[in-house]
Nucleic acid binder design. Structure first.
Ligand code: FES
Ligand code: FES
Lengths: 149, 149
DNA sequence: TGAAACCGTACCATAAGAGTGCTATATATG
DNA sequence: CATATATAGCACTCTTATGGTACGGTTTCA
């Protein structure tokens, strides 16, 4: 339905919380889940997934928890979506636009009249998602001067 | 998974085909479905939905069919998605950003730290989808001078 | 009258998403 | 060592959305 999944939403909230902690501080999944009223097990799953790709670091055992492993500025919405939801694709056939080469399987339609335009739109969507960094999400408010409307 | 549904894809193909016909010419659902190898019943459903909102016009009876009822330039991806898939929303709580008022139900999370930024991102996504018009999709190739990369 | 084509709706099947549970492992604490 | 805490990993269920199909009805033309 052209919407982010809840997993991505949970990841945004969790990473935003972790980003605001002091460098090196830990926060347990339970703590974060309790703070934002999200299911603990769900958040654990999401955090595990984030840890597996290196976005957050996990410390096991009592007094353990999670902490940021990368700078929020280096994580974009496109990255998160790619990790948690799979590759972004506008249409069924447009599998992924990676760099210059377009891994496309447009054989699903005989003479698809919208293949090329969709690829361009796909590229633009990917570009948009990549432009939204976690750093912007973490900031509580945008600078008033940036109020481009 | 942040992807358009097949219905939207079929709609794009069908409307693109209709747009290329002569003004007033009709094309039956069966004809279009046969042309692009899509299920006839599916395409009929999509076309009916498009007709119900006035994007295409239907002519019943033998020798009937569908034809464009609006200028392709006036139909954006955001419009199509809104009709066929429901409102665009980045997050669960961000229901819809319509004009100035943001119909938002952000009570799902206690102290959501990403509410405001997500709303801004949502606005940008909507703006992007609105910027992609059916007119651009219909064109077989972008003007070489527009090759912005 | 009959065929062609749209109309409307209801129905089913599969897939994806959302959520839960359990066991194992690692660490701090007593 | 025993225990509580907390992550790791897996598998499982449940709900919803999507994709796809079917059937009967209505309108129009030959
Ligand atoms: S089949 Fe690839 S864009 Fe249509
Ligand atoms: S609850 Fe609305 S953005 Fe998080």
């Amino acid at each position: 339905m052209l919407a982010l999944t809840k997993k991505t939403g949970y990841a945004l909230v969790a990473m935003s919380h972790l980003s605001r902690l002091d460098r090196g501080s830990l926060a347990s999944a339970r703590e974060i889940a309790d703070l934002f009223d999200v299911p603990t097990s769900l958040l654990m799953n999401v955090l595990k997934q984030l840890a597996s790709v290196g976005y957050v670091e996990s410390v096991r055992g009592a007094r353990g928890g999670y902490r940021m492993a990368v700078d929020p500025e280096n994580v974009s919405l496109a990255d998160l979506v790619g990790v948690l939801e799979g590759p972004v694709r506008l249409a069924e056939c447009v599998t992924e636009v990676a760099g210059d080469d377009t891994e496309c399987t447009c054989q699903v339609m005989a003479n698809c009249p919208v293949a090329d335009p969709l690829h361009r739109a796909q590229r633009k969507l990917k570009d948009f998602l990549a432009s939204v960094t976690l750093g912007e999400i973490v900031k509580p408010a945008p600078a008033p001067t940036e109020n481009k409307g």
